[in-house]
Simulated assay, not measured.
Amino acid sequence: MKKKIYLIPGFMNNEKLWSRLIPLFDDAYEFIHLEIPLKNSFDEIVDVLNEKIKDEKINLLGFSLGGYISCYFGLKYPKRVNKILAVACTPANLSEEECIKRREAIEFTKKFGFKGLSRKKVLSLVEPKNQNDEELINVILQMYIDVGEEAFYSQFNATIIREDLSEKLINSNLNLAFMYANEDRLVSSKFMEEFSLKAKNIEFTQIEAQTHMLPLERAKEVKEKIIQWF
């Protein structure tokens, strides 16, 4: 029987996020990509996913925002989850400063229109050694455009109201693992280290890397973690 794993992408990502990861596996694995539902709260998002997924008990792999959604799903529907792997993700809330930035980004986009990511922004997400990888850069740029304006508003609105899930996860019975890069500027290593000291029921894997885009840039390491965890 194939090992089936459901995949939830990150903010403004689509199935292209897995384009360097899935080809590394043989036919023993089946990957099912889930788009993030166009809803304005995490409760609504996971309710839609719960309706959409027909298997009784599932394995979930979430990247970045998708990792947070996977954790939220597991807490709300624990009986539906076998194992969760959250990649490049913290279960933390947002600072007030970050909330303000996101509200400003929404208002700016409403005023001036939806535009793609700047190349400068993309380069800040990838490893220095890969900043001349045009295929990689173009994949990230294109995902943002493909996912589009409606998803931009939906995902930003949902993430502004984001609670810290760490205590709930510590007190849960979820089979949960986190994987992240030590120099990912979007993931707080300090938060994760403090979280790992308290969360004896959760597995943590930190790798030496300067990227957020682990499924695209560190696909081999993610593959090894998937095989080990699931």
Rank of each mutant, 00 (worst) to 15 (best):
F11Q: 02
Q155A: 01
F63V: 06
G62R: 01
L174S: 01
P9Q: 07
C89L: 10
I36D: 01
S188E: 11
S19F: 08
L136Q: 03
L136Y: 10
E183S: 12
C89Q: 08
I5G: 00
M12F: 07
K120T: 14
P9K: 07
Q206H: 05
K121A: 14
Y77C: 01
K121D: 13
T211Q: 03
L85Q: 00
N14H: 12
F31K: 01
I45M: 09
Y68G: 02
L24N: 04
L165E: 08
P91V: 05
S70F: 09
Y144V: 04
L125M: 15
K110S: 07
E51M: 12
A209D: 12
D164V: 04
Q155W: 12
N93E: 14
A88V: 06
F191G: 00
I161D: 14
N182M: 07
F204K: 07
S172K: 10
H212F: 09
S124L: 03
L186P: 02
K39P: 04
V222A: 00
G74E: 01
E163P: 08
G62M: 03
S19P: 03
Y72V: 02
L34M: 15
E30M: 11
K76P: 07
T205Q: 13
N201R: 09
D184V: 07
K79V: 11
L214T: 02
C99F: 00
